[in-house]
Structures are given as structure tokens and as C-alpha cells.
Design a protein around this nucleic acid. Structure first.
Lengths: 129, 129
DNA sequence: CATTTATTACGAAATCTTTCGTAAAAACTA
DNA sequence: TAGTTTTTACGAAAGATTTCGTAATAAATG
């Protein structure tokens, strides 16, 4: 039996998850310092968010030391998949093609990456094409 | 001078925009009926949302008849572009490739659509040369 | 015309999200 | 040890979003 308990992380939560996915397990101080490079955000704000995220099981906390260590407990890829699925449903009427066209059309993507995407498409097509 | 007034539509607003993009100008009753096929939602809830959306200039209202007609005032493609950009930034560290891979990996996309995407990639590769 | 039905207007409750202030506890420092 | 710094805990304010109840108005119906 499959249960799909996806609770969409909020914008602020995603921001923190990004840090954790990139840097691995971190202290509040480290996370807050990273966030600070992008915008003003109070230390206790970050702390509170992490505590809420722990309640929601978006992160795990290691409390063995006084300075707690937070770690993402949902995978980046899983989360990305669900966010894409949600966006597909919410704004693209489920058409992956349209979403892909938008993503490629808007952003400058390198030759190399375009090649990789093409290879993936060929894999999806069955390699025969 | 260019003003970029993108105020991200909320989830509920996107849901309504989808209806308007799909069905064109509609009455509150029509919109609400469409929404009802997916979930419970009160008539006045939909009305209120539309009134808020009108304030935000997400929709235009024709009030010449007693029964008002609402129409999307932002384009689907423009909105999609901005939502994709935002998702790219928020969850994919800006990598269009990763987003595309997710979108294609998760969703069943038809051969025909895959071909179209490939053609688009080839156009991009050609242009960028 | 009187009654019912449909629609708009609008305030406000309920909820969710983000932010921060304050306090307590622990660790460090002089 | 006394004072300073760091960290956690937690309530609550502020803001945004969603939902709905009620009332007023207009239209339709009998």
C-alpha cells in the first residue's frame, strides 16, 4: 500500500532545504549564515522555521550536542519530482511538453546540457529512434 | 521604462486562471461549476477570489450585465514562464536541465511530443552555434 | 404584485506562513 | 566565579490566503 504524504514545503522551507541539500547536515548558525548571503533573515527566524520543519518531518535533528545539527529528511529529487508534478497540474494542464518548452525557452542552457537532455529523450523513446 | 509587476497567483487563483484560460470569459457560476468537478468550493468563495483577483489585475470584469463576466488578464504563457523561472530558482538551483529531466522522467510523454522537444533542442543548438 | 431565486458586496473568521522578541539554559572567557 | 556569548524554546504579532455568512439588490416566476 502506497501512502503519499507530500506536504509541500513553503517558500521559506524550500530555501532552507536548498541549503541542506547543498551543504549537508548543518547548524542553525551555518544555515542562517548561508541564507544571509541572499537576504536579511534573523537567526531566531531560521531557528523557528527549522523547528517547524522538524515537526513536519522535513528535517531531522541531532540533539546530542547542545548545538543541534539539522539534516534534510526528504530527498531533493523526490521533492523536485513532486514540485514539478504539482506545477504541471496547476499551470500546464499536465503537459510535460509545454513545461519543458518553457524551461528550455526561457533559460540559457549549455550545449552540453542540451545534448544530455537529447540523450535522455532518446532513452525514453527506446533508443531506437 | 519597464515595470515587471509579477505577483505570483496563489494556488486558488491559479486554479481559477486555469479555468479561464481553458474556457475563456466566464461567469462566477460557470467557473464555480467547473471547480466543483474537482473539489468542494462555495459559490461565494469563488466570487470573493475573483473580486480579489480583479483588484490585483489578474482578471478583468465586464459589469455591463448584472451577471458579471470574468476574463483572465494575464497570459497563460507569461504566467507559465514566471512560474517555471520561480521553480527553477527555488528548487533546482537554476538548472533547467535538471527540471527538464524531472519533468520528462516523471510524466509519460508521447513519442510525438518527445520528437517536438528534440526538434526544439536542435533549434536551440543551431541558434546558439 | 408578492415570492422565490440568483447575484454581488463585504466583513470577518479561520488558517497558514513568516518574523521576531524575550527568556532560559548552556558554554565560554577573563 | 562573574559576566558575556551562544543557543534553544516558545509565544505571539504581522501578514497572506482561503473560506464563508449575511445582507442588499436585481431578476425571474407564479
Amino acid at each position: 500500500m502506497m501512502q503519499s504524504n507530500f506536504q509541500r514545503p513553503t517558500e521559506a522551507e524550500l530555501e532552507i532545504l536548498q541549503v541542506l541539500w547543498t551543504s549537508g547536515p548543518s547548524t542553525v548558525r551555518q544555515i542562517n549564515d548561508t541564507l544571509q548571503t541572499k537576504r536579511e533573515v534573523g537567526y531566531t527566524t531560521t531557528l523557528k522555521l527549522l523547528q517547524i520543519m522538524a515537526q513536519k518531518n522535513l528535517v531531522e535533528v541531532d540533539k546530542r550536542q547542545r548545538t543541534h545539527i539539522y539534516e534534510a529528511s526528504i530527498e531533493q529529487e523526490t521533492t523536485q519530482k513532486q514540485l514539478v508534478d504539482q506545477l504541471l497540474d496547476a499551470a500546464f494542464g499536465g503537459s510535460a511538453k509545454k513545461l519543458v518548452m518553457q524551461a528550455l525557452g526561457n533559460k540559457k542552457t549549455s550545449q552540453k546540457e542540451l545534448e544530455e537532455i537529447k540523450k535522455m529523450i532518446e532513452r525514453l523513446e527506446g533508443g531506437a529512434q
